[in-house]
Design a protein around this nucleic acid. Structure first.
Ligand code: FES
Ligand code: FES
Lengths: 152, 152
DNA sequence: ACTATTTAAGAGTAATATGTCTTAAATATA
DNA sequence: TATATTTAAGACATATTACTCTTAAATAGT
């Protein structure tokens, strides 16, 4: 898998949050229910996003998490890097150290281009872009889709 | 990581084998030494490639493995599928079941295209292509490169 | 026939990723 | 202040991947 499960869960949660464009806090319990993700596991993942300042959190009743800024200002790339780290955009497809150095691997030419394409795609796509598409075209971010876009 | 370590090891080994265009058997011990891969682990991986009929093996002294056909006839895609399975070319980037069905995920449009590009690249690149490039441009398939292309 | 060499097969171990549970700290509300 | 609710943090458990070790089977050479 290109992205870890943690990363996928992080994307699902931030996409759903992005569709709640009310600026209020949403409890992780609520997110985990809607997205069918283990509450404690999702909590850990969102903590990483909070540490990366992509989310803001508040404890206590009425607490929860919310996007730290406009959903149009947060890119998929930022979410991916916050969880899986930046290396996936620089690593050799054959796992060799120092990809792109003076002595690359035979697959470097083809891979580096594709890898940059992926990074570019994620870089130029905001949470708003994806959540809007999800809403407008009634797309899925869970297996069975028993959540509703834009309804906190 | 896009490819598992097993898959990467399989690619390294088949690329090196492809540069030995003599049709003889090369012992796995020799490959594991040259490629800095655990002998027993590499053996298991190459067994998968033998089962998939990409390699032929022979036991006993003078035994070993060799490509089952011309290196120009074996694609990187075949090696990848034999080890990591075909799913990486059909899976949803968000891990949802049934990618591409009537209700895809918001990232489907961007991902499906990139995923197909990757498959196409691997499909249209043969072991010969890569090993030739490796030889001609003195490229790496190990961390320190203390192997020599084309020298069994 | 015997021995050395090599792949085949499977059990066992270690490392990492994924998921669960418990306790602590913060905060809103009564 | 007291209580309920919620995130934070870390220990713990399970699953998957990566790797190791042992034994069996086949084959070439003596
Ligand atoms: S060196 Fe292998 S992909 Fe860059
Ligand atoms: S449904 Fe998600 S990538 Fe196809």
């Amino acid at each position: 898998m290109l992205l870890s499960k943690s990363c996928v869960y992080g994307l699902r949660a931030t996409l759903l949050l992005a569709s709640y464009q009310n600026g209020g806090y949403t409890s992780i319990k609520d997110l985990s229910n809607k997205l069918d993700i283990s509450f404690h596991f999702l909590t850990k993942i969102l903590q990483q996003l909070t540490a990366a300042e992509l989310l803001e959190s508040m404890k206590g009743p009425k607490g929860g998490v919310r996007l730290s800024g406009e959903s149009s200002d947060i890119t998929l790339r930022e979410v991916v890097i916050a969880i899986d780290g930046p290396d996936i955009f620089t690593e050799c497809v054959l796992g060799l150290p120092g990809c792109g150095s003076e002595k690359p691997c035979p697959m470097h030419a083809m891979w580096a281009e594709t890898r940059d394409d992926i990074e570019q795609m994620l870089q130029t796509t905001s949470l708003e872009d994806m959540s809007k598409e999800g809403m407008e075209q009634d797309l899925r971010i869970t297996a069975d889709g028993h959540f509703v876009w834009g309804e906190p």
